[in-house]
Design a binder for these strands. Structure first.
Ligand SMILES: [Mn+2]
Ligand SMILES: [Mn+2]
Ligand SMILES: [Zn+2]
Ligand SMILES: [Zn+2]
Lengths: 135, 135
DNA sequence: TTCTAAATTTGTAATCATTACAAAAATAAA
DNA sequence: TTTATTTTTGTAATGATTACAAATTTAGAA
């Protein structure tokens, strides 16, 4: 995918920093925090400011090409995937996995007559690999 | 329910502050933030410190009689209900409703072999009443 | 009851993530 | 090339939470 194109399509001027930040999100798909993004890019962009990371992510969210998840009370994570999907976080190794879910029979009875804009499903536990390795 | 008794049963010495804080959580069931709890109790307990609210909630969580939800990126809310249930927040009036959900067919296929410790379901939108009143 | 030790509460300072904001740099338009 | 606009940057301000030590309260021993 052409990232500059993608940004332009969504009304975002494709500056160098914006391209690099989106590229990181999109290629890693690792649900990073602001700090993780910053630390991973500052090597390649020595002048990068954390403000720019914050500004850029806010813009991406505003234009609908990035979503957030707060699976842990104290850290906001970012995701280039914007379709509705859930997340599993392994409390042992910290890895975050995307999970699909059907919202059809979930809670729908109670929400009759409500207008649903957004749903988040967060699951915590231990992943397959950590269980095998007894971490 | 006898709150002092309930705290004792869970290995928590029922001090005046602890009883009042739990009483607030349990009777209101309004998913308050620390600040909301503090502001609502400081009238009755003029010497109350926000530190005590933080300490007490941490203890409650540790002992398993309180849970947290972070439906909004920047505010942690507390809940005397500890059984697994989801939450709906109305973006118009701010009210938070408990919702039941079945986790059986949600995401289970993907999580085969994983050990699930905790799940959170957050839904945002407009509540029935706000839709009727066109808020 | 009085004394002493332990637990709890309190107030303040430190920390950390995020936001605000204005100056500097880069880009686009004239 | 000027000038205006946009973007980036650095720093200060804010706000929630945590750390920590002093003050207060509670409980137990004498
Ligand atoms: Mn994801
Ligand atoms: Mn609840
Ligand atoms: Zn793991
Ligand atoms: Zn409402």
């Amino acid at each position: 995918m052409n990232i500059a194109q993608h940004l332009s399509t969504h009304d975002i001027k494709p500056s160098y920093q914006r391209i690099k930040i989106y590229e990181y999100l999109y290629e890693k798909m690792n649900h990073p925090t602001v700090d993780v993004i910053y630390k991973n890019l500052v090597g390649e962009i020595p002048t990068l400011s954390k403000s720019t990371v914050y500004n850029t992510l806010k813009l991406f969210i505003d234009k609908g090409i990035t979503s957030t998840l707060t699976i842990e009370d104290n850290e906001v994570r970012y995701d280039a995937a914007v379709e509705s999907h859930g997340h599993f976080k392994c409390t042992s190794c910290g890895a975050i996995f995307d999970i699909k879910y059907d919202f059809k029979d979930v809670a729908m009875n109670k929400l009759k007559g409500f207008e649903i804009k957004e749903t988040q499903v967060h699951v915590k536990g231990k992943c397959n690999q950590c269980l095998t390795n007894k971490n």
